[in-house]
């Protein structure tokens, strides 16, 4: 007892050291490039939410049947990109999407979020249209159903229509080659298995 009480005065110091360790780890994580605003999606490994989005009227690139519904995402691995013509980061990301589309690696579907058809069409005509299908989400119903907090956000959807990965922010060449591309290859292998 006497020995114990002699060291009781060290207890507050121990508590402070533990707190420093906890907060310090978080600070180092953030300093190491982890974005503190990133929210882990609770939707990983859940099916894409029910949606049946209207097509972009007067679209620059004409499609036989456009719009984006949940059923359209079955049968093939795809990348669903939430964007808007008002979104500056989407513009930064756009050349990468155009390149991905050219490479034929994966079909990219667009959810045009809180946008007007006029602005969206003008934007696509100017910067290129890498999207297979485009669905309009003017009142954020699908964006909220997807837990979207800002644009751009991209969802990697497997052949069964299940969300397998969510990337927040512009897809950069590094993100594409180090994360998305290998994941797509893996998901395609999965889909090829009977």
């Amino acid at each position: 007892m006497a020995v114990k009480s002699r060291f009781v005065f060290l207890l507050p110091l121990a508590v402070v050291l533990i707190l420093i360790a906890v907060f310090g780890k978080r600070l180092l994580d953030v300093a190491g490039g982890e974005d503190p605003r990133l929210l882990k999606s609770v939707l990983l490994d859940t099916p894409m939410p029910d949606m049946d989005l209207a097509a972009l009227p007067g679209r620059f690139k004409t499609m036989p049947d456009d719009g984006l519904a949940t059923a359209d995402l079955k049968g093939q691995v795809s990348l669903v990109n939430v964007w808007g013509s008002w979104c500056v980061a989407c513009l930064a990301e756009h050349p990468m999407l155009v390149e991905i589309e050219k490479s034929g690696a994966v079909p990219i579907h667009g959810i045009d979020w809180r946008d007007t058809p006029e602005a969206a069409n003008a934007w696509l005509a100017r910067h290129g249209d890498p999207y297979a299908r485009i669905g309009l989400d003017p009142r954020s119903h699908t964006a909220i159903a997807l837990g979207v907090t800002g644009a751009p956000e991209s969802f990697l959807v497997d052949a069964n229509g299940v969300i397998r990965y969510k990337y927040i922010g512009p897809i950069t060449p590094e993100v594409w080659s180090s994360t998305l591309q290998p994941m797509i290859a893996q998901l395609e292998q999965e889909a090829a298995k009977p």
Binding site: R139, S140, H141, A143, I144, V148, T149, G150
Partner: peptide
């Protein structure tokens, strides 16, 4: 979007759409 406001107080567009929902 703003992270430290309620959607009731926020003027962000997404907060508005969440209020509507």
């Amino acid at each position: 979007v703003c992270q430290n406001e309620t959607i009731d107080e926020s003027n962000a567009e997404l907060a508005k759409d969440m209020r509507m929902l």
